[in-house]
Design a protein around this nucleic acid. Structure first.
Length: 153
DNA sequence: ATTAGGG
DNA sequence: CCCTAAT
């Protein structure tokens, strides 16, 4: 499949670029030598090689829902597919972002302690989704047993 | 080109 | 988020 570009939807003015992600606010920034979009917002970390990192954007509950539903339909690990069908209009959300988010959701669901409300809602939603779908398609693609159910997460 | 997992 | 070994 074609490699994902984080700045596909962008409008360049001189050296400045306004990037649109579809579901997020437009961002003003520039492109580095590799044409990677970056902002100049103070506080945004800069990697060792001097290249700024993509600005962090927490997934909205709405996006988390899409992710969970995507996983329940295509299975864990099928991030490229989930990105293509559920995040087609979100240039900044890469398949790797989805993979990382899923990992964080799992960690959060296993963690204890009283997180903030937003976090609780997300965790609850994910746990319910997993509990509801785990018998059907939440399993590792490689570890599927003869029963076809595989190892549930 | 993708995925999985550590950084 | 990034980096990258292994597919």
């Amino acid at each position: 499949m074609e490699k994902e570009k984080r700045n596909i939807v962008a409008f360049a003015v001189e050296h400045n670029v306004i990037a649109f992600s579809g579901e997020m606010q437009p961002e003003l920034g520039k492109l580095d030598s590799k044409e990677n979009f970056y902002t100049e917002i103070p506080g945004v970390p800069i990697a060792k090689d001097g290249i700024r990192r993509k600005p962090h954007h927490t997934l909205s509950l709405c996006e988390v829902v899409k992710l969970v539903e995507g996983v329940s339909r295509y299975g864990i690990g099928r991030w490229s597919e989930i990105k293509r069908v559920s995040f087609a209009s979100s240039p900044f959300r890469t398949s790797v972002d989805l993979k990382d988010k899923w990992r964080n959701l799992l960690r959060a669901s296993f963690a204890q302690g009283p997180p903030d409300q937003m976090k609780n809602d997300t965790i609850r939603y994910v746990n319910d989704a997993i509990k509801e779908k785990t018998e059907v398609s939440i399993f590792r693609k490689e570890s599927a047993g003869e029963d076809g159910k595989g190892t549930a997460y």
